[in-house]
Structures are given as structure tokens and as C-alpha cells.
């Protein structure tokens, strides 16, 4: 047996960051919401181990890409809501552009094969 903990999900860290930023582009959300959004929009293709989400959220917050505030959820529980900052928005644009170019390139390579 190797080490027990897996790397955060099976996603590359950069990819997880991009997904989080993208999910918050539609408006502020709590961590559970982000996880659900990722499951649903990827049609459960991207399995994120949900625990891994939180360190990523906190890291992005520390980098100033996200802001957070405590609010009440639909069932009246205390929940932490994350929102994109201006810097986060800019980062999302850059990452998206980069990802597009990358996947386009990979697609072309795969087609020529």
C-alpha cells in the first residue's frame, strides 16, 4: 500500500482552481454549492473528492482572487459564501484563454494522429 491520502482529487491543481473560479463567475456561492456545480456541469465526469475543494478555496482566498463572507443558507444555517474579486475575474479570463489554446492544440494533435 502506498500513502493513504490521495492527491487532491484526481484533477490537476490548476484545473481545480479554474473550475472554482468558473463556478463563482455566476455569483457568490458556498463550498457545497461549488462542489455540486462541478458535479452537475461535468455530468459527474470530474470526480472531485469534496474535501480537496476547501484547501483550494482557502488558497484562492489568500491569494486575493476570492473574497468571503458569512451568511445564512436556505435552511438558516451559518455558511461561508465565496465571491470572485476583480483580480479573480481577471485570473479567470486569463486561465480560460490559456485552457482554450491548450485544449485546441491538444485536439489538433490528436486529430492528426
Amino acid at each position: 500500500m502506498k500513502d493513504k491520502q490521495k492527491s487532491p482529487g484526481d484533477l490537476l491543481q490548476g484545473t481545480l482552481d479554474l473550475l472554482i473560479l468558473k463556478s463563482l463567475a455566476r455569483g457568490s456561492m458556498h463550498g457545497y454549492g461549488v462542489a455540486e456545480w462541478i458535479h452537475q456541469t461535468s455530468e459527474d465526469v470530474l470526480r472531485v473528492e469534496e474535501g480537496a475543494l476547501y484547501p483550494a478555496l482557502h488558497r484562492l482566498e489568500l491569494r486575493g482572487l476570492l473574497s468571503s463572507e458569512w451568511g445564512l443558507s436556505d435552511n438558516n444555517r451559518r455558511a461561508k459564501y465565496y465571491a470572485l474579486t476583480a483580480a479573480g475575474l481577471k485570473q479567470l479570463a486569463q486561465e480560460t484563454e490559456y485552457w482554450r489554446r491548450m485544449s485546441g492544440a491538444v485536439a489538433r494533435i490528436l486529430q492528426t494522429a
Binding site: 469534496e50 474535501g51 482557502h58
Partner: peptide
Amino acid sequence: RQFGNVSWTKQRSHEMW
């Protein structure tokens, strides 16, 4: 189970803060 290792998550976040 879906969440994974809770204390590991806590530790990671804690270290970040």
C-alpha cells in the same frame, strides 16, 4: 466518504491560514 479525509483537509487549510 465523498468528502474524504476531514482532518487532512482541516490540517491543509489550517496550515494555509
